[in-house]
């Protein structure tokens, strides 16, 4: 039935997620063009840097030809795109491996960090934002305000140094660096240390991996959490005097239920987009924290690639970051429609 088929296609076309996905792909393509060009117009000779100062000139020249570096930029981009559609991102000039292999090795460490950061950030935001927003002017509110300003002012790497100094070197509660304690080895399956530990059935390793994750995640979460808690708080302050919250007070519902359900959910609508952006930007912003905690993540790999002018490495890392950024944003959009039915049903105009 062609007509049904057509209407089905129309439905897909109309769906927000589909449109977002297409737009994201286009913007990723644009991103690749920009970063591809930028990486090549920056001064420095990638082939020479890869082979070292003492390599004979004809070897370097052959390497340039291998990388198509002598050809015009548009042709280089064409070759790169052709390879991309075969699933290849090119050879890294640093590791001399396929860049996708490098990324596959380093990405899980960063993603794992991002996930725990996101969890800490979301829980912290909801708890602190709701507590201070439901009792504006209280002692808790005042304390959280001070904490929030401190949190916003101090960048993540400073938190990292501070937390590492206090909780690892002084108190010794948390390990200072690395993803897992030396001596524990678990087979790599997904690259996520915690998940691999669970797959191997090694519960101690799981706890150990979490232990290593905690400080860097906390360092990354604190600043964003402070800011988001403030946003949630101001939305809460506005909502708790609204009739649609007071209604539930007037019926004698426990205060905690009223605040954490009937005031929180409408307040989250304005907070979730900010949370999403903050979490997405972790993929690139984790760099300093990864250095401090000696975390073998993507940020660390990306910076090394840039310093060594590893052309394919740079483009690969930026593209993956862009991809994760867009995926996170699509997920955020979906979550918002779940939270706010007025968006889900396309209604809501009073």
């Amino acid at each position: 039935m062609p007509k049904n088929y057509l209407s089905y296609l129309k439905k897909i076309y109309k769906s927000v997620i589909f449109r977002r996905a297409v737009l994201s792909l286009l913007s990723l393509l644009g991103l690749s063009l920009i970063i591809f060009t930028l990486a090549r117009v920056m001064p420095g000779d990638p082939a020479r840097m890869a082979l070292g100062p003492r390599a004979p000139e004809e070897v370097v020249q052959r390497y340039r030809e291998l990388l198509h570096l002598n050809e015009p930029l548009y042709l280089q981009y064409y070759y790169w795109l052709r390879d991309l559609f075969q699933g290849k991102l090119g050879i890294s000039l640093v590791s001399f491996r396929e860049v996708s292999i490098d990324i596959a090795e380093f990405l899980p460490a960063t993603l794992e960090l991002m996930m725990l950061t996101a969890i800490i950030q979301i829980i912290g935001t909801i708890v602190f934002g709701t507590l201070s927003g439901s009792r504006p002017g209280s002692i808790i509110d005042g304390a959280l305000r001070v904490f929030a300003y401190i949190g916003i002012c101090i960048p993540a790497f400073a938190w990292a140094l501070f937390l590492q100094f206090i909780f690892s070197y002084q108190l010794g509660w948390f390990p200072p660096t690395e993803r897992i304690s030396p001596g524990i080895s678990i087979p790599r399956v997904t690259g996520f240390m915690t998940i691999d530990a669970l797959i191997a059935g090694n519960f101690n390793a799981f706890v150990d991996a979490l232990w290593h994750l905690f400080l860097p995640s906390l360092a990354l979460a604190l600043g964003a959490m402070a800011q988001e808690a403030r946003i949630l708080r101001s939305a809460m302050v506005e909502n708790i005097s609204k009739d649609y919250v007071l209604t539930f007070m007037s019926h004698g519902l426990p205060y905690r239920l009223v605040y954490f359900k009937y005031a929180l959910k409408p307040s989250l609508v304005s907070t979730i987009p900010v949370m999403g952006l903050d979490i997405a930007s972790l993929i690139a912003n984790a760099f300093m924290v990864e250095i401090i905690f000696n975390w073998p993540g993507l940020s660390k790999f990306g910076i090394t690639a840039m310093l060594r002018k590893d052309l394919n490495g740079i483009v690969g890392v930026v593209l993956v970051a862009g991809l994760i950024y867009t995926i996170t944003n699509i997920i955020v959009d979906v979550i918002i429609t779940l939270v706010d039915p007025r968006i889900r049903y396309g209604g809501g105009g009073e």
Binding site: K242, D243, Y244, V245, T247, F248, Y262, K265, P266, V269, V339, D340, P341, R342, G348, E350
Partner: peptide, 9 residues
């Protein structure tokens, strides 16, 4: 219009 919570059934 304001007494019912907009995000719950």
């Amino acid at each position: 219009l304001a007494a019912l919570n907009p995000v719950f059934t």
